[in-house]
């Protein structure tokens, strides 16, 4: 299998008319693990939603290609079929739809992108077997599959459920949006191991979005990027994580005064942005 590249160039994104991302450049090859760090409100989640195709995020300039597929021309479901996955920071619950039923539809659509609506789903038997195996690997109780999607799940269960979906959908690229938030250290470990297992088996390119070092002890990035004021201002290796952990963002602030002003504005209005 030839490896693909996720190539984001000069991406500008606005939410409700307000510019959030102001020219993001980022290239990820399959098999690589990248970390995207930055303070709250710097636009990290905006990047993930915009790439996945949320209708509230307006792309005003730039490109995003997965291999030779122009992601920005596709609906969200088509982006998933093209091999992009987003593990949500706040997964939505869908009452009355069981995890198993939801995932069976998802897996069917992603694995058989040319299937027509109304044609058969993947075999229940094979699906159940695969689901059980993946749930075992993540230490999830079998009962989980029969529960309604994210309904009444604890924070840790939701994140585990996201990683279960990642494992079932086997994407070329996975964006993990604050997957460690709200998890205790054991849960971070289990979830991270799950991500590493999938990434290794599938050669998935991983983008870990976080503002804590913690998860990066388990999902170790080769490349680290700092998003600040709507732009990626620093690119480096794992040493960047250590620097940030030691010094915080003050040096970034001092080094990039123009982005710092943007950052201040964004932070002031962050609560108004979805």
């Amino acid at each position: 299998m030839s490896t693909k590249t996720l190539r984001i160039e000069n991406l500008h994104v606005s939410v409700e008319g307000k510019p959030i991302l102001r020219g993001v450049n980022l290239t990820i090859n399959q098999g690589e693990t990248h970390a995207l760090m930055g303070p709250n409100g710097s636009g990290k989640s905006t990047l993930s939603y915009a790439l996945m195709g949320h209708p509230n995020y307006e792309i005003t300039d730039g490109t995003a290609y997965l291999g030779d597929v122009n992601l920005l021309e596709l609906e969200a479901d088509e982006r998933a079929k093209a091999g992009l996955f987003l593990a949500f920071q706040y997964p939505t619950s869908i009452p009355g739809v069981t995890m198993a039923n939801f995932l069976r539809h998802a897996v069917t659509n992603v694995r058989m992108p040319d299937r027509k609506e109304g044609e058969d789903l993947i075999s229940m038997r094979d699906f159940r077997k695969e689901l059980k195996q993946k749930m075992d690997e993540l230490g999830m109780d079998g009962d989980f599959a029969r529960r309604y999607l994210n309904e009444g799940f604890s924070g840790g269960e939701k994140k585990r459920a996201e990683v279960l979906q990642l494992a079932m959908l086997q994407p070329a690229f996975a964006i993990l949006d604050e997957t460690d938030s709200g998890l205790d250290i054991d849960a971070v470990r289990v979830v991270s191991e799950g991500v590493n297992r999938v990434a290794k088996a599938q050669g998935t390119g991983v983008l870990v979005i976080t503002h804590y070092q913690r998860i990066l002890n388990y999902i170790q990035p080769q490349f680290v990027h700092i998003l600040y004021g709507g732009r990626i201002v620093e690119n480096g290796g794992p040493e960047l994580v250590t620097t940030l952990e030691r010094e915080g963002y003050d040096w970034i602030r001092a080094k990039y005064p123009q982005e710092a002003r943007v950052e201040d504005e964004l932070e002031a209005s962050a609560s108004a942005v979805v």
Binding site: F88, I94, N101, A106, V107
Partner: peptide, 19 residues
């Protein structure tokens, strides 16, 4: 959320209504 998992919008709505 369902679209992000590869489920087309119309199918997603049907699932949500059934749910």
């Amino acid at each position: 959320y369902a679209e992000a998992r590869g489920i087309p919008a119309e199918t997603a709505k049907r699932l949500i209504v059934e749910g």
